[in-house]
Computed example of a mutant assay.
Amino acid sequence: MNAGVPTTRTARLSIVESIILHHVIESQQQLADLLADEGIQVTQATLSRDLDDLKASKVRTPSGTFAYAVPQGAQYAQSADSLVPGPRPARMATKAEQQLSKVIGGLITKVIAAQNLVIIHTPAGAAQYVASAIDKQPIADVAGTIAGDDTVMVIASDNQAAQKKRDWLLEMASNAR
């Protein structure tokens, strides 16, 4: 199993969700194989229950095949850092980005890059909601977020990535509808 990932049901659900968000998963066997690559062995019955718990469903991809998708705002956050993002259905990525844009457009008041950190200011009480919305996105070069009451700290892989994420967040917030 990945270093830093506990062997709990919640952690497994988080990894299943992350795999579905990062890859086009057309079958439970394909999902089971990717979980095995992460060091997680599951039975078909367990995997079926996990997909039900995540409210995963199959949606048509732009290529016409069907792949699993999880609803935006599912209760389990992503945590499988070692996953390499693969091709995802464009329609799902666009919807997720639009939803993130709406969240941050209405709640971000200021964004600053400081070394490899991006500091986001929000109205009081909104930081955890913004952090959760960011954490649910497969964003390259972002390790995760930490939220207080009105401030979110986004941890980027390096200083340059932090500057790019700051610019990206500001652009998304400015273009929110």
Rank of each mutant, 00 (worst) to 15 (best):
L83S: 06
L83E: 05
L83T: 11
V84L: 08
P85F: 08
R88M: 07
R88Q: 10
P89L: 06
R91V: 14
R91E: 12
M92N: 15
M92V: 12
M92A: 11
A93Q: 15
A93V: 11
T94I: 15
T94M: 13
K95F: 12
K95N: 10
A96Y: 15
A96C: 07
E97N: 13
E97K: 13
Q98L: 13
Q98H: 12
Q98S: 15
Q99M: 08
Q99L: 14
L100C: 10
L100N: 08
S101G: 12
V103L: 04
I104W: 02
I104V: 12
G105L: 04
I108A: 09
I108S: 04
T109R: 02
T109N: 02
K110F: 00
I112W: 13
I112L: 10
A113F: 04
A113G: 04
A113Y: 04
A114R: 12
A114Y: 13
Q115D: 15
Q115M: 11
L117G: 04
V118W: 00
V118S: 01
I119M: 05
I120S: 05
I120C: 02
H121T: 10
P123Q: 07
A124L: 10
G125Y: 05
G125D: 02
A126N: 07
A126D: 09
A127S: 05
V130W: 01
A131V: 07
A131C: 06
A133L: 05
A133R: 08
A133D: 10
A133I: 08
I134F: 01
I134H: 01
I134T: 01
K136M: 14
K136T: 15
Q137V: 09
Q137P: 04
P138W: 15
P138R: 12
I139S: 01
A140P: 10
D141L: 08
D141H: 14
D141G: 13
V142M: 00
V142I: 03
A143Q: 11
A143F: 10
G144E: 05
T145M: 05
G148T: 08
G148L: 07
T151N: 07
V152W: 01
V152C: 00
M153P: 07
M153T: 14
V154L: 00
V154W: 02
I155F: 05
A156H: 07
S157N: 15
S157I: 11
S157R: 13
N159Y: 15
N159H: 13
